[in-house]
């Protein structure tokens, strides 16, 4: 074991619930600032206490409004709540309009809330690369619940499943025919389905259909996903939604699924960081090299296909370094 390093000032500030320090540290984590590694390490033992509730679903189903309704309910119950709203970055300009704050009603003096908008910055899956670490910062800061709203997601954006402890998939009536829901992806990660905008016609049918679907979707545990209907306009169904979330959290803790799921999530995270590290190093090693330029000339002249060029780069630069097994 290494000698335990002193706790960095930034970590002490987070544990002392310094909001400005938290805001600044989140920025550094987002910007992949190298100086934050010892701070994150020092804070890690103070994490793992918050319930991380993911809200995901297609564009415009009312995720932000539901977050606002849940926020009001949780503050009334005296819970300290962190909120992360992810919105997409433009693949063209890199810029982003982060609009999740618009839906949030709050007293700016209420220190029991910390809301942060995050741009996805090219990360696929409805989250940003740094989202997991920001969740952990809010956890270490003492937030009991973290509400994590993804960018509007498509069928394959299921990364939230590996980050949140309870996943709420938000849908609205008339999103598509039944075949849509037979397709793989989003529907498989739901612990709770929320049919939002249930003031619109078709909500009962959608909820009924989802309830039938739940019985047919295999799971790795014995939890049977609940289906609730909610309307943020009428203010109905919010209590039921939170009750369903709490029931799942309770199930996780009593069944041992939490530990099991947690280990899977941690493994995925370690492997992803490892992959990120290796990729960055491996790509940087060949980027701009004369060898790459030579290969590109060949590809451009259609003498070598792109895959053969990549194979050649790999063979020359990485394959030999592998230890023999």
């Amino acid at each position: 074991m290494r000698r335990r390093p002193p706790v960095p000032a930034a970590a002490r500030a987070i544990l002392a619930r310094d909001r400005l320090a938290l805001a600044r540290l989140i920025t550094k984590v987002e910007n992949r600032d190298h100086g934050v590694a010892p701070v994150l390490q020092a804070l890690y033992p103070h994490t793992g206490r918050a319930a991380v509730i993911g809200l995901t679903g297609p564009l415009g189903v009312g995720k932000s409004s539901l977050v606002n309704s849940l926020l009001q309910l949780l503050r009334k119950a005296g819970k300290r709540v962190g909120v992360i709203g992810v919105d997409p970055s433009s693949p063209f300009s890199g810029g982003s309009v982060l609009g999740d704050r618009i839906r949030i009603d709050r007293d700016p003096a209420d220190t029991g809330i910390f809301f942060r908008s995050m741009a996805s910055r090219g990360h696929p899956g409805g989250l940003a690369a740094a989202t997991r670490e920001v969740v952990r910062l809010l956890d270490a800061f003492g937030m009991e619940v973290v509400l994590l709203e993804t960018a509007g997601t498509g069928q394959v954006d299921v990364e939230i499943g590996a980050v949140a402890s309870t996943n709420v998939v938000v849908l609205v009536p008339h999103l598509g025919d039944e075949v849509q829901s037979l397709k793989a992806g989003l529907f498989e990660i739901a612990d709770v389905f929320c049919v939002n905008k249930c003031d619109l016609p078709g909500a009962d049918g959608a909820a009924r259909y989802l309830a039938e679907l739940v019985g047919l979707t295999p799971r790795s545990d014995a939890w049977r996903p609940r289906v609730v209907q909610a309307s943020t306009v009428l203010g109905t169904g919010i209590d039921e939604l939170w009750a369903a979330v709490e029931a799942h959290e309770a199930y996780l803790r009593t069944s041992g699924s939490f530990e099991k799921g947690n280990r899977t999530r941690l493994e995925a995270e370690v492997l992803e960081l490892y992959r990120e590290r290796i990729l960055a190093g491996a790509v940087a090693q060949v980027e701009g090299s004369p060898e790459l330029r030579r290969l590109l000339d060949e590809v451009e002249a259609r003498r070598l296909d792109p895959r053969a060029a990549a194979d050649s780069l790999y063979e020359r630069n990485h394959a030999r370094r592998r230890p023999r097994s």
Partner: peptide, 12 residues
């Protein structure tokens, strides 16, 4: 500002 590559938090 978004098109200029900035992250714009729109508070409304």
């Amino acid at each position: 500002l978004r098109d200029a590559g900035m992250e714009v938090i729109y508070a409304g």
